[in-house]
């Protein structure tokens, strides 16, 4: 994926670390048949690259659902590299087409969560592209080095947002929509013509935003009951929009309301079972 080259200092929550001190931790999910094999060839050919990527082998890039990626960012990864076969080369026929669609969602959620989307990178590396693998890793490590460490462990606000994005990625609504889109994708064909952008894509974008905001409301109201206004302010979302979300969440029985007389109502997340 070619990334547009724009400034890298734009995220306020992620100050740039002093060069030299910071060794990024990058997880690389590599599909067994192409990118893992490409990494193998890279080794056999002795192309050198920085030591920061930790490969995790999966059978197909399609295995990586958005919540895995968000969960790992939540755990503090500085970057995640997804490696797959080139489109049309997938060992499992169409897996990487699905991956591409899912990555779109992941990037959207990262953006919502305030994580620079450049921290996630999807690359097609074939089994014969050993040198490319080293280049990708070198470049990506450099990108992450410039972005500085993931602040999730230090920054509580960021933590809630990433947690919310993680939750949103797990919601039935988003997964069902993406599933539907993938079902349509499958009817696309193996000769390299991709389906046109669907209406569905727009729907998914809207749903992503909504689900993220709802999850964030739940996240923020977990330990403390909060008012609409308060939520609106933290989330930088207009209050009427917050209220709409609250209505939905109340209908789903996910929020409880406290309304002492004379006070503005506040809402608290209903926690089922031990874990939320």
């Amino acid at each position: 994926m070619a990334e547009p080259q724009h400034t890298i200092h734009e995220k306020k929550d992620e100050p740039r670390a002093a060069a030299g001190e910071f060794e990024p931790k990058i997880i690389g999910f590599l599909c067994n048949w192409c990118s893992y094999a490409g990494a193998d060839l890279c080794g056999v050919s002795r192309y050198q690259y920085p030591t920061n990527v930790r490969p995790v082998r999966v059978m197909c890039s399609t295995r990586i659902s958005p919540h895995l990626v968000l969960d790992i960012f939540k755990a503090g990864a500085d970057g995640i590299l997804l490696g797959g076969c080139h489109l049309n080369d997938c060992h499992y026929i169409s897996g990487n087409f699905y991956t591409e669609k899912r990555v779109r969602l992941m990037l959207k959620l990262l953006e919502d969560a305030g994580v620079d989307p450049k921290r996630l990178r999807l690359e097609w590396v074939s089994a014969s592209e050993g040198e490319k693998f080293s280049k990708v890793v070198t470049e990506f490590t450099e990108t992450i080095r410039n972005l500085g460490p993931n602040q999730v462990k230090k920054d509580a606000a960021l933590r809630s947002k990433i947690a919310a994005a993680d939750e949103a990625s797990d919601t039935f609504r988003l997964r069902a929509l993406v599933g539907k889109e993938l079902g349509l994708e499958k009817t696309g064909n193996v000769y390299g013509n991709k389906l046109e952008q669907t209406e569905l894509e727009k729907l998914i974008d809207i749903a992503t935003k909504e689900e993220f905001e709802r999850s964030l409301i739940l996240e923020l109201s977990k330990d403390k009951a909060r008012s609409v206004k308060e939520l609106g302010k933290i989330m930088e979302v207009p209050t009427d929009r917050v209220l709409r979300h609250i209505v939905v969440l109340r209908q789903k029985n996910m929020l409880s309301m406290d309304h002492p007389e004379g006070f503005t109502p506040t809402y608290k997340t209903i926690i089922i079972g031990g874990e939320q």
């Binding site: 997880i27 999910f29 930790r54 995790v56 999966v58 059978m59 197909c60 399609t62 295995r63 990586i64 659902s65 919540h67 895995l68 969960d71 790992i72 755990a75 990864a77 060992h91 499992y92 897996g95 699905y98 899912r102 797990d170 039935f172 609504r173 997964r175 069902a176 993406v178 599933g179 993938l182």
Partner: peptide, 28 residues
């Protein structure tokens, strides 16, 4: 391939020998 698992809206599908828990533990 794991496609169904990554797609199922109900998260009802596990991949034998490549479970979410295994992948997350490995990465984390």
């Amino acid at each position: 391939c794991g496609c169904c698992g990554a797609t199922c809206p109900e998260m009802a599908i596990t991949m034998t020998n490549y479970t979410d828990a295994q992948l997350l533990a490995e990465a984390k």
